[in-house]
Amino acid sequence: MNTIETKLAELGVTLPEAMAPAANYVPFVQVGDLVHVSGQISNDANGLILGKLGADMDTEAGAAAAQTCAIGLLSQVKAACGGDLDRLVRVIKLVGFVNSTPDFTDQPKVVNGASDFMVAALGDAGRHARSAVSAVALPLGVAVEIEGIFQIK
């Protein structure tokens, strides 16, 4: 029984299929027991989540967009683990990029959408080091992109 996916279901989350790369890169690279996952862009069942924080999107909506990136990251980790998400040991680091105006300074609150989700889904194994930075633009106009490093067994 997959305990991580059981916890996700309790949170109302079903992991989608891992997204294929949109350019000349691979979705993840495993080195030893570490999986480096390429940036996952904000999207949900309705498509891409577009917007610029500080202009046409508020912090709460940005945090929700960041959560979708975290879900995408876990989908990639599941693929890296051959479908067995219980091989995930812990989240090591997340790097969040927030499409925001020059005067917007709440990037950490936006990326908390991903961080809070990881802790809710994984408990202490979801606690991680992190960076949250502003970007003048992100691919396709998405609001948030997050990459991550994960330890697996």
Rank of each mutant, 00 (worst) to 15 (best):
L50Y: 00
R90N: 14
A70F: 09
L140I: 02
F28R: 05
I152R: 08
P139I: 07
E5T: 10
L15F: 10
D44Y: 02
K93L: 06
G113S: 08
P139Q: 12
V133T: 14
V95C: 08
G141M: 01
P21H: 07
D84A: 13
V37K: 04
Y25S: 13
N24W: 04
I41D: 07
G83T: 07
F28C: 07
A120P: 01
V98T: 06
V77R: 00
G82N: 11
D116P: 02
D116C: 06
M118S: 05
L34I: 13
I4C: 07
N112T: 09
G32L: 10
I4P: 01
I71C: 05
G123N: 10
L53K: 00
I4Q: 09
A132P: 00
D44T: 06
V26F: 10
Q67I: 04
A63F: 00
A120T: 09
T101R: 02
V111R: 03
E60G: 05
L48S: 11
K153E: 13
A22W: 06
V89C: 09
A64I: 01
A61K: 09
M1N: 12
A20R: 11
S134E: 08
F150N: 03
G54R: 01
K52M: 12
G32A: 09
L140Q: 14
V26K: 15
A114V: 01
G12N: 13
M57I: 05
K93Y: 08
G12W: 06
L34R: 13
A125T: 08
K93R: 14
D33F: 05
E10H: 08
I41T: 10
V98A: 04
A18K: 02
G113Y: 02
V35I: 12
L11K: 12
G47E: 08
A64D: 14
V119F: 04
S100G: 07
R87Q: 15
V98C: 05
P108Q: 13
L138P: 04
D124I: 05
A125G: 11
V13W: 06
